[in-house]
């Protein structure tokens, strides 16, 4: 038997990177199949929020322009669900680190990239399921997209893009925090990140300083951009950031990925130091 040439080796490596990544993804999907309640659990807060804001506060909410509140708030809820998603990533990573699962993977001859890459792919798929459930609930309470099919699909892709970017923040923080309790405390970060945004009300209706923060929140750019795609009329304010929401809803996630993906990978590699 002759030793494999370098290109052969590279091809085999690439092959195993894909296969191992897929094995990790299948494992995550196996979790959902074994325990569908995981989805209900993670969607608990967004669902309660929908019911609360639509039915309890909805009649008292005036977002201007005679806009129906359900139409306004539903896209915000989608964006908030994506924003909170990084908590799930961080928690899952911390649990695996704590329980020694990551160490076991690292002591095995599997592709090094698969743990992080598999987590990324699995979480995007998971987010897709989350969004589908949220959309069904929205449809059930009377929400409709007024955009074309293409616009609607694009809106959902923008949501997934935001979630994709946040995975790397999740992996990074999940590896950074010392234990599961600390990971639970990340809610203190997730909460304002999801809420101080245009999710529930237009930033123009907030006090100036808060409105400025909310406007520049990446969650707001996605929320504002998808509102336009869903055909909601009275959303964007006059500021530059709000006027450029369609652009920023792509730029923000790319920027976050550009910063946090390398940080997450570095942190993962640092486990060996």
């Amino acid at each position: 038997m002759s030793a494999p040439t370098t290109t052969e080796q590279d091809e085999r490596r690439l092959y195993w990177e894909f296969v191992d990544c897929w094995t990790i993804v299948r494992r995550e999907l196996g979790h959902l199949a074994k325990q569908p309640s995981l989805i209900a659990w993670q969607l608990g807060f967004p669902i309660v929020s929908v019911l609360l804001y639509v039915y309890v506060f909805g009649s008292a909410m005036d977002v201007g322009g005679g806009q129906d509140y359900t139409t306004f708030v539903m896209p915000g809820m989608f964006a908030m669900t994506m924003a909170f998603g990084f908590m799930n990533t961080a928690m899952a990573v911390t649990v695996e680190k704590d329980r020694g699962v990551i160490d076991r993977f690292r002591s095995m001859p599997m592709a090094r990239s698969a743990v992080v890459a598999g987590r990324g792919v699995a979480d995007v798929l998971h987010a897709g399921i989350d969004l589908a459930v949220m959309a069904l609930i929205a449809l059930a309470i009377g929400w409709r997209s007024d955009g074309s099919l293409v616009e609607t699909v694009y809106a959902f892709l923008l949501l997934l893009l935001l979630r994709f970017a946040l995975i790397w923040i999740g992996v990074y923080l999940g590896l950074l925090v010392p234990n599961q309790e600390a990971a639970g405390n990340l809610f203190a970060v997730a909460f304002p990140f999801g809420m101080i945004s245009s999710v529930f009300t237009p930033p123009s209706m907030m006090p100036d300083w808060l409105g400025a923060i909310a406007m520049w929140n990446p969650v707001s750019s996605t929320a504002t951009a998808i509102r336009e795609l869903f055909g909601v009329s009275t959303t964007a304010g006059d500021s530059w950031i709000e006027q450029h929401a369609p652009l920023m809803s792509v730029v923000w996630p790319l920027a976050i990925t550009a910063v946090f993906l390398p940080l997450a990978v570095r942190r993962y590699q640092a486990l060996g130091r």
Binding site: R27, V101, D103, M108
Partner: peptide, 27 residues
């Protein structure tokens, strides 16, 4: 083979699924 201070297996999957998954990851 490494067995660390914690039982590093997947809690949600079954025993059989765990071993098959690790088998796949051992290529």
């Amino acid at each position: 083979g490494l067995t660390g201070q914690h039982a590093a297996v997947d809690e949600i999957l079954t025993a059989r699924q765990n071993l098959r998954m690790f088998g796949r990851l051992f290529h």
